[in-house]
């Protein structure tokens, strides 16, 4: 029981520039898609549209469970998440950052504690839980963002360059986590990356954005 995602004829224009044109794809549940493309080709834009942060000018974004399309409401939004390229760390402790999504879902305090600590262990930030999240290094902040997303056990997880501009060590940790998520097979993953080797390592399917179009890679 997961979610699949269907894009049909997506167009998006910014300031008269057509960034995405006629993008269509079916993302099957439980698979990992690696999305590549040159800088500024609209990868982040496409992920924001998939995350329901933005609406396309034309076309349809549908999430389906058991082939049935779901209404784009809060309930659906809470089954998916996006790791933003800039993460968007909240000015509070590492623990509170990861607990955020659970708190706003009114999860009980004891369960929050348990789940947050478990995830912090996975991303190797348990010892930093009381520290101010804004003081983390870039690599640690990316891991925090991943933890904040994973703790929600999303059925669709959209990752926008989770290893961009961080060192080898952090990259390996993050790839390890993504591989683990893949192995569990519960989530549909769309991973934007600049690194063809990483795309090959992690992606079940490769995709490419070129001239605004979404193509098989």
């Amino acid at each position: 029981m997961g979610l699949s995602l269907e894009l049909a004829g997506i167009y998006k224009t910014y300031n008269g520039h057509e960034i995405l044109r006629d993008c269509s794809w079916v993302f099957e549940e439980g698979l990992t898609y690696a999305l590549m493309g040159l800088n500024g080709t609209g990868k982040s834009t496409l992920l924001r549209i998939c995350a329901l942060l933005e609406t396309p000018d034309q076309g349809r974004v549908s999430y389906l469970a058991d082939q049935k399309p779901l209404a784009p409401d809060l309930e659906l939004r809470r089954r998916l998440t996006l790791l933003l390229p800039g993460v968007g760390v909240f000015n509070t402790s590492v623990f509170n950052n990861v607990a955020y999504g659970l708190k706003i879902r009114s999860v009980k305090r004891r369960e929050i504690e348990k789940r947050v600590m478990a995830i912090l262990d996975v991303v190797g930030l348990a010892h930093k839980r009381r520290e101010r999240a804004l003081d983390l290094s870039t690599g640690q902040a990316k891991r925090l963002g991943l933890a904040r997303a994973m703790v929600l056990e999303p059925e669709v997880i959209l990752l926008d360059e989770p290893t961009a501009s961080i060192d080898q060590e952090n990259t390996e940790i993050i790839e390890g986590i993504i591989r683990k998520m893949k192995a569990e097979g519960k989530a549909t993953i769309i991973l934007v990356t600049h690194d063809p080797a990483q795309a090959a390592r992690l992606g079940d399917k490769l995709l490419l954005i070129q001239d605004g179009r979404l193509l098989p890679g």
Binding site: A51, T81, L82, L84, V87, G88, F90, G101, A149, L152
Partner: peptide, 26 residues
């Protein structure tokens, strides 16, 4: 407050009120 905070709140499942409160708290 950086607009990314609002986006982060949204993608983590905040409803409109929670989103606003998150930005205010920031």
């Amino acid at each position: 407050v950086n607009p990314i905070i609002r986006q982060a709140a949204r993608v983590l499942g905040a409803n409109p009120l929670q989103e606003a409160l998150t930005v205010i708290r920031e």
